[in-house]
Design a protein around this nucleic acid. Sequence first.
DNA 1: GCGACATTTGTTACCGGTAACATATAGCGG
DNA 2: CCGCTATATGTTACCGGTAACAAATGTCGC
Lengths: 355, 355
Amino acid sequence: MADNVVEQDNGSRLQRSIISRPTMADVARLSGFSAMTVSRALKDGASVSAKTRERILEVIEEIGYVPDLSAGGLSSKRSGFVTALVPTINNSNFSDTACGLTDALSKRGLQLLLGYTDYSAAREEELVAAMLRRRPEGMILTGGFHTPRARHLLDSAAIPIIETWDLPDNPIDQVVGFSNAEAIGAMVRDLTARGYRNIGFIGGSSKRDTRGADRRAGYEAAMAELGLGEGHVITFGTPPISMEQGGQAIVQMIGQWPEVDAVICVSDLSAFGAIMECHRRGWAVPGRIAVAGFGDFEVSRCCWPSITTVTVNSYDIGRQAGELLLATLDKIRSGAEIRPATQKIDFKVVVREST
Amino acid sequence: MADNVVEQDNGSRLQRSIISRPTMADVARLSGFSAMTVSRALKDGASVSAKTRERILEVIEEIGYVPDLSAGGLSSKRSGFVTALVPTINNSNFSDTACGLTDALSKRGLQLLLGYTDYSAAREEELVAAMLRRRPEGMILTGGFHTPRARHLLDSAAIPIIETWDLPDNPIDQVVGFSNAEAIGAMVRDLTARGYRNIGFIGGSSKRDTRGADRRAGYEAAMAELGLGEGHVITFGTPPISMEQGGQAIVQMIGQWPEVDAVICVSDLSAFGAIMECHRRGWAVPGRIAVAGFGDFEVSRCCWPSITTVTVNSYDIGRQAGELLLATLDKIRSGAEIRPATQKIDFKVVVREST
DNA sequence: GCGACATTTGTTACCGGTAACATATAGCGG
DNA sequence: CCGCTATATGTTACCGGTAACAAATGTCGC
């Protein structure tokens, strides 16, 4: 695919505007007030007469002044943003969480700066270091596993940290999450109650996806607890989880353990891939084999058969984390006592056609 | 769902560290060098003796100094980041573009700051304003439609702007995209070549998704050109496009025009929803009706029947936009002439089982 | 019309770095 | 061992705002 480059003729915007952008001093000079008054006019709640503010805003509009937040932040020691790190942005669970965060934080004028770690603790470490250089007022992380250096950086950052989507054994600070192991345990119990006895599990082979690993552990624990044997686990490659992996895994599962009558997949995406592969091969779902997923993705609601899954209010994880962060910032400012706490988020097994 | 709050007992990290973070001056004092030398030690390519740098890095490590980029940027007039605005992050097309951008930009140490507009020009305007206050070195936009105020802000920003995923009639600056109308035209021709004659189109009713509107226009143009009549269009609600909407739309399509033998959907997501609804109702795809989508999402490759679609290298849009931005920044710095250009990205109709 | 107080505006210093220029030190050929 | 150049380091000013305090102006009751 050779690229097709077409010249345009709209002049050169950039060369026209070599002159540097107007600053607050320019506004001050042109309006006849001091820079400080201009600064106040832009901040609501400051004491500036209506007339003055009006005049200043006029000048601002006229010369197209745009305040520089990094200069302001340098002086006021408030950067005005919060960082969130998620494994991947292309996953409705995490993007919903990001939306919840944005909504909660924007109420107080805080911006969200998003980074994605690609499920890699090393990249998380890099991002933590890179983000801290911009002095976020708080940080939201996904999961409880971090490199020692990342943890050290976070520990000395002196800003509120919230870990989400998990219940870490040794939390840094605050937590908004749930137990992935328990959630899968609930799914195992639900399948058992419906009469399935030979329940398998399909998940990633890597430990990079720690929530995936927790889910597998939850499966194994529940199987043992219910006296259903050691279980049958098929693993596939590294995250992010793909649909295709689910398809391959279920073929392997049935090949290896034909007696398996139900499979729990680490994610709806792999469950979907598994179900589609079953269609292709003429294996009825749930007649020949039942399939359940995790995460309540849109595809599970919409596909046929619709997929039994564990639903978690992803948006709410973000919203609650955002609100907790705001509350913590308030406490820091007011000098109130900060008590690290864990907010547990509820999950629920949603039974659909696939089981 | 009541939230379950559990107190923890890990001490209060935040209250311990009220003391302000170390600055470059602290490093300077402790290492016995001047702040400027510390600054140079942290910048590669600067003339600092190996011994000095080593000593300085030692101190930095010891006291946990983290440089403040906003202070540095204020002085050097280089913020070190670029902003990209996408309609939504929860769409593999745009998130792939974001990955391509990240990869291209990180080669030169630029960070990507992502914002999502929710397909709203008003929110785009807000984001443009908010982002410009942080002085990005460039900005990547999705599509060519912006509010007048957003356009004005961008025009006076004096930074390179790249519009993507579209070929705007009146571009701001540089463009990396393709014609959505042409792409759908190619799909109409492909279906025609396969013998389909009554081709319908399913898309959003809102103009917010301008790429969606372009695709519809491309459909209508191609139908007229091929003498296939005015076509049959069913619209559903506002973006983001959901799978469910596709399911509802195809039922309406068949109800209204039973003679339709093929449907093009504005996105693979709605195509998928449509196909699943057909399954449910026992309408064979493509026997009773053929269904095509747009965007080559994973679900189309994996589902059964797999979905005929238009594939665009989303990652490459990002990568190329990133590289173009870097090249433009170089030109600005070297004073070379900047010629706004449009880089056309290729698209391709991928025929699969659903047609 | 005066003093007490509230409101509005100005001044100065500083946030934490880096550019630009000045100066000190090292390396090196003759 | 000198003088020249290259390299290493220091000094000063400034980037664009805001905090903190000072000063001026306005308001109001008596």
